[in-house]
Structure formats: C-alpha cells, structure tokens
C-alpha cells in the first residue's frame, strides 16, 4: 500500500517538474514581459505545488512543513506577480506588437495604498 502511494507521489513530482520546465520555456519564448509573467510564474506555482504534494505522498511524516510551504506558495506567488505587472505597466514597459487592446489608462494609476500609509 505504501509502495503504491510512493509511486503515485514520484509520478506527481515528475509532472510538477515538467510543469516547471514548461514555465521556464515559456519565460524564454514569450515576446514581452506580461506574457512572460503569465507563462512563468503561474506554471511554476503549479509545478512547485505538485512537486511538494508528491513529496508529501512519499514522506507523510513531513506533512507539517510541506503543507506550510504549499499554502505559502499559493498565497504569495500571485501577489508578487501582480505587483510586478503593475509596476511594469506604471513605468511603461512596452507591450508586444501582437497586443490587441490596452484599456488601462497609464496616467491614472491608483495610489490608495500610499494614502493609507500617509494617514497613519
């Protein structure tokens, strides 16, 4: 029984590493920054998540730290990619020529967070 779980875990680890590789490939192939963020950070989130989940199936005694790492990655990774995309758009990193629409007004970026910090 434990053996089957170990093999499933190993296959999940392999799948996760393939997703990590695809994310890195997307990072190299995509034409502009925003598409690189799309392909890179999110495939790497799923890849790392699957790898750690596979490790969890292989070594169940380590569940505490592995679960902590998985939740940590799932929470922090979208935040960092969002902040990065916003900063890049603010400093006018150009979008690729294939872009069809850009509805975000560049002059009017929200600065609510900054106001809250000032008021405190």
């Amino acid at each position: 029984m434990g053996n089957i779980l170990e093999i499933i875990g190993a296959v999940l680890v392999l799948l996760g590493s393939v997703f990590l590789f695809l994310g890195a490939l997307g990072l190299v192939r995509m034409p502009d920054l925003y598409n690189r963020i799309q392909a890179g950070t999110k495939a790497s989130t799923l890849g790392t998540f699957l790898t750690l989940f596979g490790l969890l199936l292989i070594i169940p005694e380590w569940w505490g730290k592995l679960v902590l790492l998985m939740t940590f990655i799932l929470i922090t990774n979208p935040v960092s990619s969002h902040v990065l995309a916003r900063a890049a758009h603010y400093i006018k990193i150009p979008l690729t020529d294939k872009t069809v629409a850009d509805l975000l007004n560049k002059e009017k970026t929200t600065y609510k967070v900054n106001e809250e910090i000032k008021n405190e």
Binding site: F19, L22, L25, G26, R29, M30, P31, D32, Y34, N35, Q38, A39, K42, A43, L46, H89, L95, T96, K98, T99, V100, A101, D102, L103, L104
Partner: peptide, 20 residues
C-alpha cells in the same frame, strides 16, 4: 495550465494578448 502549456509548445506561439 494545460492550455498555456499547449500554447508554449506550439511552434507558432498562438497568443493574442491585451489588457481588458
């Protein structure tokens, strides 16, 4: 994720990006 993997692996890179 599978969808993006398909896009990355296709040689012609079928993307149609934009901000909406």
């Amino acid at each position: 994720n599978l969808d993006v993997a398909r896009r990355v692996l296709t040689p012609s890179l079928p993307i149609n990006p934009g901000i909406i």
